[in-house]
Amino acid sequence: MTSASSSSKQTISLEEWECKMAEVPIAKSDLNQLIMNYLIIEGYKDAAEKFSEESGLQTQVDLGSIEERMQIRYAVQSGDIRLAIERVNDLNPDLLETDARLYFRLQQQHLIELIRQGRATEALEFAQEELAPHGAEHPELLRELERTMALLAFDRQDSPVAELLEFGQRQRTANELNAALLAAHSQPREPKLPALLQLLAWTQAQLDDKARYPRINSIVNPVLEEPADKT
């Protein structure tokens, strides 16, 4: 797509824009639903409870399940993978049974934790007895196992796979598990709000080619800014 030239772009003033915006109906109840959806999916149990009370939202939130999910997430984030697996199996024993990739991801994380703690012999034994047979049944996972085993071959500072030992790796595993738990119970994997914000950013990028208009340049401080003058 080619950009329209600066002179051919239509300019929309802030006033005009705000008038148009005022014509778009947004129901308060929809906004509340969006907020509740965010709180529940992201696991803010207490906030969801409070919000439910204050907003009068008639959603029967299964707060117990939020708590269970958050405990699992916390266990992964703190490196206690065994506990996380036990909790997942209590919540939904089919999940790790039927999702070989997710099961592997958790076992891999456990292996990483053993290596992080310097328990190399135990790590090797675990890889050999638990992960290797699983990899043999799912060869597509073997590459990832090899990558993890490389942690044993290098010092942390020289390791080409050092990122596996970073907190971000636990976070990724926790997110993947949380999304799988949500999906396994017919719930959206992601909250709707971030997707709406992504849509806003994408729409502005599309519109940038065609018009000068009051933009939102920061989603943290979403103020409409006057379009820049023609240059």
Partner: peptide, 14 residues
């Protein structure tokens, strides 16, 4: 079942 978040009820029906 009225709540979209009632995970276990949905699981049983599913």
């Amino acid at each position: 079942i009225v709540s979209v978040y009632d995970m276990h009820s949905h699981a049983r029906v599913e």
